[in-house]
Amino acid sequence: MKISEDVVRHVARLARLAVCDEEVHGLASQLSDILEYAEQLQQVDLTGVAPTSHPFPLKNVLRTDVPRPGLPREVLLANAPDDDGEQIRVPAVLEG
């Protein structure tokens, strides 16, 4: 699977990564290598094989609906790059 530079740019946007032309070029070839290698999975007949998303099939790990203290607001905001003392501030979210 050859990955074109356009696809690299599209995927980078999906992942919120800004990539310069030089990086796009390098990534296109590296991603192509890796995905070409991964192509070997296409050669195996996997019909009817259930996917494994957990190594062990645990079920129903649940907690009871009882409140517990969380973090004081100042602790949350201490790590925030920008805040107004109560809320976290970010550049305007553009919405109609």
Partner: peptide, 12 residues
Amino acid sequence: HAADGSHTLVDY
């Protein structure tokens, strides 16, 4: 969203 469009505040 700030009325002047300058920023957005987030409450979790």
